[in-house]
């Protein structure tokens, strides 16, 4: 059973990608219609923005209205402006935590990918080992990260080492399963070709199966990026004294709501950037190999 939760998750992620490629109503116009007077161009751009981002615009409008309607004071529920002010006035508070979180996330991501790919290749070479390991990988995959962090903390202490170990484990599973399934996806005719050519194991792995697995491996990277960030944030929240997760918790404990919300916003932006970078990397690489 190679289709584990991870590969199914990959399918949903692929579907999300395809949906984002759906042509919007604004995209169907002919090029000639676009070159008109500037006012129309601005109007068209505004329309395109509204069509693409209307739920976010609606949220930004609804939020202050909701606060006002419920009579919340700004001390309890900061508005968008309060959050922005704290960000602009105290950038130094956020800079270091962002760097820490990014460092752990990216470092853990790369390490986890490496371990996952190497083990995936080794396991793929033996049907027995992959048959033995894949179901177990499925079970380990559903261990919630909220349970994993305390267990790892008990094992390896409350420091930054535990955070890295946890990200590596989180990233390892998608990379591992997708490497195995990508390498197994090679068509029978290609396998036959390499068999007829009399190629050895190394040639088959490095010239046929591993290149064929590159799209799956890059997909694993894209899936893992937000998962890795979430893992780091949760681990920092519970364990180490550094990073955005820690900032979120301490600001919450000190009732500094602007700071808590701003930290949440920064974490969101960081996550979206990582996701975007992983997506771009995936596209570039997949374009090259297919």
């Amino acid at each position: 059973m190679t289709e584990s939760i991870t590969t199914e998750r990959a399918v949903v992620d692929q579907a999300a990608e395809e949906l984002l490629e759906r042509p919007g109503p604004a995209a169907t116009e002919t090029p000639a219609a676009r070159r008109r007077n500037p006012l129309q161009v601005v109007g068209r751009i505004l329309a395109a923005i509204v069509v693409r981002y209307w739920p976010i615009i609606a949220m930004l409008i609804a939020w202050p209205v909701w606060l006002w309607a419920n009579g919340y004071s700004r001390a309890v529920a900061p508005g968008p402006l309060d959050v922005a002010t704290d960000l602009v006035q105290h950038p130094d508070v956020y800079l270091l935590p962002v760097l820490w979180t990014a460092l752990f996330a990216i470092g853990g991501l790369l390490l986890g990918m490496l371990v996952g790919i190497v083990l995936g290749v080794l396991v793929w070479m033996s049907p027995l080992v992959s048959g033995l390991l894949l179901p177990s990988a499925l079970i380990l995959r559903v261990v919630p990260v909220t349970a994993m962090i305390p267990i790892l903390a008990a094992l390896f202490g409350y420091g930054s080492g535990t955070v890295v170990v946890m990200v590596v484990i989180l990233v390892f599973f998608p990379a591992f399963s997708l490497t195995v399934s990508g390498m197994s996806s090679v068509s029978q005719s290609s396998r036959d070709l390499f068999a007829v050519l009399g190629s050895g194991l190394a040639a088959r792995v490095f010239r046929l199966h591993l290149p064929a697995a590159i799209p799956s491996i890059m997909l694993a990277l894209r899936i893992s990026a937000p998962v890795g960030i979430l893992g780091v944030l949760l681990a920092e929240y519970l364990l180490s004294g550094v990073g955005l997760g820690d900032l979120l918790r301490t600001a919450g404990e000190r009732l500094e709501y602007e700071r808590e919300w701003a930290a949440a916003l920064v974490a969101t932006v960081l996550s979206v950037i990582c996701f975007g970078l992983a997506r771009t990397a995936e596209r570039r690489v997949v374009d090259r190999v297919t």
């Binding site: 999300a16 976010i56 937000p226 960030i229 979430l230 944030l233 949760l234 929240y237 997760g245 979120l248 919450g252 709501y257 808590e260 919300w261 930290a263 949440a264 916003l265 974490a267 969101t268 996550s271 979206v272 996701f275």
Partner: peptide, 12 residues
Amino acid sequence: LIDAVPAIALAP
């Protein structure tokens, strides 16, 4: 966007 936002950031 909802998928990319870490759940912990939505908590407040």
